[in-house]
Every structure is written in C-alpha cells, then in structure tokens.
Design a binder for these strands. Structure first.
Lengths: 251, 251
DNA sequence: CGACGAATTGAACCTATTCAAAGGGTGTGG
DNA sequence: CCACACCCTTTGAATAGGTTCAATTCGTCG
C-alpha cells in the first residue's frame, strides 16, 4: 500500500468573499459574453451589478422563488440543483467563476426552476433582469454569446440525459469524472485533482444513483488504480481507462 | 368490455409535402421568433429558405454531420434523437409545425449532436446558418425570441433529467403522456387522443426504458382505465390519475 | 385472406437500491 | 497537542424494479 494523501484539495480563495472594484471589473471581463466590450462599457455595466458573499451551503435562491435576477459567479463554486417531490435531490451542474445562472428571460411571474446553493465560500454578482435586458438591447454581441452558451448547455443536458438513459452506473460516474476533470482538473503530485469539494452524495446526485452505489463504484475504481479518492475529493490517475469505461472508446 | 376503436389517428396532412408559396409564408409567420415581422420582411426571409419533403423514417441529418443549416418544420412530425454507442437510441423530442431544429450557432467545424428523422410525411424549410445569422443581426427581436425558446428547452431537458433520475418507470411514462397530450392532444370520441404516431419503442426511448416495460406499464394503465391505446396510438382517459402517478399531485 | 410488424406476456436473471452497521478522516475543544 | 465527536464513507446482505430473451397474440396493410 502506498502512502495515501489525506486532504489534497487547496481551493485558493480570495479570502475576502467581498470582491474589490478591480476584481469585479476583472471578473466581468472574464465573463464570456462581456468579453470584447471596452473598459468604459464594462465600468458602466459594473455599476448595474450588486455583489454578495455566501458561506458554504448557503442558498442564493430556491426553486420556485420569483425569478428576478441574473447572477454571475465571481469567486467560489455554486451548485445548481432540483429537488424532486420524492425527496431525491438532483445536481444539474457545478459553476465556477465567470459562469452565469438564474433568470435570462423577462417573462412576467416567472420563477426559478432550480435552486442555487454555495458549495464553497463564494462571491456572486447579481443584476436585475430588467437591467440585464437593457444591456442585451444595447450590445447585440452579448445576446448572441448568451444564446451560444445557452445552446451549448442544452446540448450538455441532452448528453447527460442520453447517458443516464443508456449507460450503467459505472459508465456514468466515469464520464462525470472526465467532465469534471476537464473543468476543474489541476495537475499535482497525486494526479489530476478535481479542484472542488465533491462527496459521494454529490456524485450520486449528478449521475442518478445513490451515495452507497457511488461509493462502491469509486472504491472499485481506486482498487483498479484509475482514481485516487478520499473524503470530499477525487483525483484522476488513469484517464484513458476511465474514458473506455465511459463508453467513449480510446484503447 | 366496451368496443375498442381500431385506428383512431387521423393526422390531417397537406397531402402534397411540397408546400405552396402561400403556405410557406403562413408557416413562417407561425414560427414564434418570426411573429411580429411585417409581411415584407417575411417575404424577404422566405426567399432565404429552401423546402424539402421527407417520407416517414427518412433522415434529415445524422448526428455527426457538418452543422450547416437551421430547419423549420412546416408540416408533419420530426423526431430528434441520439444514438448511444451501446446501440440504445434515445428520443429527445418530437417536433411539430412551427418548431425549429438543427444548428443555431455559427461555430466553425461544428456538427449536429443529434439525428433528425421524419416520423410522418413531412415538409421542412431550411436556411443556411450564415443566412440565418444575417437575419439575427438585422432583427434583434428575433434573437431574443430564439434565446427564450432555447432557454425553455434547456429547462425542459433538465426536467426530463430530473424525472429519469428520481421517478420510477410508471411515473415517467405517465408524465410523458401528459406532456405529449398537452402538445398533440385532440379531443375526440375516444378521449384526449395524442395526434402523432407513437409506438411502445418510442415511449421507451423517451423515458429511458425498454419497449417491453413500456408495454407492461401501458397495458396496466389501460386496465386501470387511465388510457386507451393500440398499435401506434394512445389516448388519455383519466388525466388526473395520470398526473398523480407522475408525481405532480392533483387529488 | 395472408403476412409482416407491433404489442403482449411469461419467467429467469441482474443491476442497483435499501437498510443497517462499522470504519475513518477532520476539525474542534479541552 | 491530543482526544473526542461528528459526519462522510465503506461494506454487507436482502430485496425490488427493470431487463432480457423467447414465445404468442393481435392489428394493419397489401
């Protein structure tokens, strides 16, 4: 048995979860659909945003709340989830800085279809839908970009649906680990470490299974030398084999 | 035992699956994101579209083909599906006149993530992505509408994911029947008839199960007096009870 | 009427869930 | 700095829900 590391995750927070003005401008510039705007435009847009900090597990909004704002992750990790009536929670996505969530369209009496919850300490910027639509009208390039991102999220959702429908649990978990490592992976001495807190329950809620089954599968992956894992963390060791299990053929 | 009807579906085709000029304009006017444009604008837009007829089971494009066009259903029904590597097909959606599919974004070297196949005799209008983007640039209201539709499709996809993840087969099928009857339902002497060919295999491919299980569940629904069904057709008899089974509570 | 394809039904099998109990890392307070 | 307590994780065994394969029935179209 090799020495197993204990707690390798090191999410480098800006300790203040209140963001400085400079940081806010920097974040907004990093948001894909604001990229390309001038510094002046960004400053004007910045004025329309408010910021708010959240502690881990704090909820930004609940599914069913009146949909009034669009949010941008400035720093930290946000979970997007749905609570099914059967009590089983479903985790749709984990968002990181630069990504948006909340409401896009200004339909009257609309409500959020999902719940947004902080996974880590987080700083979030928010803008009212009305103000956001003023931006959309003023900067046509922004609308196109938002459309593009939304379309690609739709594809990703269809992809997940297909997998849940056609792959066994092993394959779905293998696939999830690949996707998360593409998004959050950071190479270190353990392997390709997924830089976000990730428990068995989270894995289960993203792959449509139970924490127990997720644990069994991941334990097996570890025994087979595919991953290294512990409490709330996972690192990928043998990416190619995982891809094969995920049904993405590559060997 | 009451007299069971044999073949109640009567999809009223425009027998010509080539559309007349008047019909084309009428269809384009019915497309949600072109609503509100002037007759002149529509005529100009109409010139950018080509039309094409398809027989049942004919494929409009295959998943993986180069994504070059956006399509609008003029008449008939289109299946959007994904072929998983395991050979199990997944049915994402059934589209009817006025709905669009294909490619929205003009990313280079993009390919269709799904396959589009005619479910009935169909007339489809198509436009190149480049031309479509010229329209998007010229008519800002169109972009916003496309964005709105795409966002609501994303919500629907997340909804399906949640259900597949949290509901047993019965609930998923009950739910599918509700959704399809909202979209295709037509009241007649049998009940609320779903006006689209729909076999057990289709139901299975939309709910992540097998044709055999779909058959068992639907047989039970029929015995319980919730639906009336036969070869390639379904009619809803007791909508409220179905909703209860679907977990949408209503009694 | 005959034939093909769809739908039904049965029975064995299997994957994943459920419930329960034990093990282990992390962080807190003494 | 160590020890304890909490919660996450692991593991086991029984069960259930769905799949699979195969055979039969039934509807629809030629």
């Amino acid at each position: 048995m090799s020495t197993r590391r204990k707690s390798p995750i090191e999410i480098d927070f800006t300790e203040t979860h209140m963001c400085s003005i400079n940081m806010r401008l920097q974040i907004l510039g990093k948001v894909p659909f604001f990229a390309g705007l001038t510094h002046g435009d960004l400053e004007e847009i910045n004025n329309l945003f408010r910021e708010h900090g959240y502690e881990p597990d704090e909820v930004i909004y609940f599914s069913g709340d009146a949909a009034t704002h669009l949010f941008v992750v400035a720093d930290g990790r946000i979970k997007l989830m749905r609570h099914s009536l059967s009590g089983k929670d479903v985790l749709l996505d984990i968002l990181t800085s630069g990504e948006f969530f909340g409401s896009i369209s200004n339909v009257e009496n609309d409500s959020y279809p999902d719940t947004a919850q902080a996974l880590t300490q987080t700083c979030v910027l928010s803008i009212s839908i009305n103000d956001f639509h003023r931006i959309l009208e003023k900067y046509p390039s922004v609308v196109l970009k938002v459309l593009e991102i939304t379309a690609s999220r739709l594809q990703a959702a269809n992809e997940r649906f297909e997998q849940l429908s056609a792959l066994p649990v092993e394959g779905r978990i293998a696939n999830l680990l690949i996707v998360l490592s593409d998004k959050f992976g950071e190479l270190n001495e353990v392997g390709l470490l997924i830089q976000t807190p990730l428990g068995r329950e989270d894995v289960a809620a993203m792959t449509g299974t139970t924490p127990e089954t997720a644990s069994r599968v991941m334990s097996q992956f570890q025994k087979d030398g595919l991953i290294q894992t512990g409490r709330q963390w996972v690192a990928i060791i043998d990416r190619d084999s995982l891809k094969k299990i995920a049904g993405l053929e590559s060997g």
